[in-house]
């Protein structure tokens, strides 16, 4: 793995990643204080890869995605960082240029598909709108194209469905429509923000399958944001674990599940119920995500960290650890591995 800490500025020339986020900070300036929703996140997505981003809700993973697209609502603001996409820094782009990139080169699908579709517009209208805004002026998209788009995401009876309103669709169907909308302009990157959270379990599998199939067919990269370790294990090639606004561990999926290094990741993995395995109780990480306004000094996880207590580390509460490449291609933000660094 290449250097992911982003310290040397330019991405390596020989293997240009599709997306490289460097030290991204997005803060919300509220009356009660500055909420550091994203606080120094760095991550990379290569062409064709599925990058999993996992963490508890409120850890800033969705906000990272929104920051990449520059869709952060007030009072939030991207404070610093770089977002390199296909060799260009998106944060240097004008609003108009970003509008052209959204939906065409980077597409997003959201958590709640039904509420993510406009209730007063027909499915076809919403599907074709993507084509309308991104294609050459003067060429009106035709209904057949919408039918084709729906067919590709496996919606039965698409000729009828395009005339439906969102409230007439099931959740899974709506998510497929969202995916069709995302795929309409053949983007290089699809950001899937908790695409299955609001869906039934059986539908979840279908939607995930669809995403993987589309990736295999089209060769686009996917940034899969989720809080479910199971989804990540099944889908992702590489995983970033986030905690309280920053990435704490990053590794190829197999490595991560084989040998989770960060105490937080361990906790997360331990909390997955495993079929056939009897446990008295599921493991629970004590405490809660810290208040994003006044972050604890030092490691953000330290107050909840059992390993810290067990190993008697003093440094954790004083200084925040850097990303340490503890194993080849396996980075972790924890003082436990200070000595393992190559």
């Amino acid at each position: 793995m290449a250097d992911r800490t982003g310290d040397n500025g330019k991405p390596p020339a020989e293997e240009l990643p599709l997306l490289q986020v460097k030290d991204l900070k997005t803060y919300f300036f509220t009356r009660r204080g500055i909420v550091k929703a994203v606080d120094g996140v760095s991550l990379t997505v290569r062409r064709g890869e599925i990058r999993g981003v996992v963490g508890e809700s409120g850890c800033g993973k969705s906000m990272t995605a929104m920051s990449i697209l520059q869709l952060v609502d007030k009072p939030g603001r991207i404070v610093s960082g770089e977002v390199w996409f296909k060799g260009e820094n998106l944060l240097a782009r004008s609003r108009r240029e970003m509008t052209a990139i959204r939906g065409k080169q980077i597409a997003v699908i959201f958590q709640e598909p039904k509420s993510s579709l406009n209730p007063v517009l027909k499915v076809s209208t919403q599907l074709l709108e993507v084509l309308k805004v991104h294609q050459d002026v003067g060429r009106l998209p035709r209904t057949e194209e919408a039918v084709k788009m729906l067919k590709e995401v496996g919606i039965p009876d698409p000729e009828r469905r395009i005339h439906n309103y969102p409230h007439e669709l099931s959740g899974g169907m709506a998510q497929r429509v969202m995916i069709a909308m995302g795929m309409a302009c053949a983007p290089d990157l699809l950001i899937a923000d908790e695409p299955t959270t609001a869906l039934d379990v059986t539908i979840q599998a279908q939607v995930l399958d669809l995403i993987r199939t589309l990736r295999n067919e089209r060769g686009m990269a996917v940034m899969l944001i989720t809080h479910a370790m199971g989804v990540v294990a099944e889908m992702a090639d590489v995983v970033t674990v986030m905690y309280a606004g920053t990435a704490v561990e990053e590794a190829p999926t197999l490595n991560l599940f084989d040998e989770p290094l960060h105490p937080y990741t361990r906790g997360l993995i331990a909390s997955i119920p495993v079929m056939g395995q009897r446990k008295e109780r599921l493991e629970v990480i004590p405490g809660r995500v810290p208040n994003l306004i006044d972050m604890p000094p030092g490691c953000r996880f330290a107050p909840r960290c059992r390993a810290r207590v067990e190993h008697g580390l003093e440094k954790c509460t004083v200084e925040e650890p850097p990303m340490i490449e503890a194993r080849p291609g396996h980075l972790v933000r924890c003082w436990l591995y200070e000595g393992d660094q190559r």
Binding site: L69, R95, T99, K104, S115, E129, V130, H134
Partner: peptide, 17 residues
């Protein structure tokens, strides 16, 4: 502030639209 407006923005629809 609703989701579908976010969707529209993510689709690359112009702000006025």
């Amino acid at each position: 502030g609703l989701n579908y407006v976010r969707t529209a923005r993510a689709k690359g629809v112009h702000e006025l639209s």
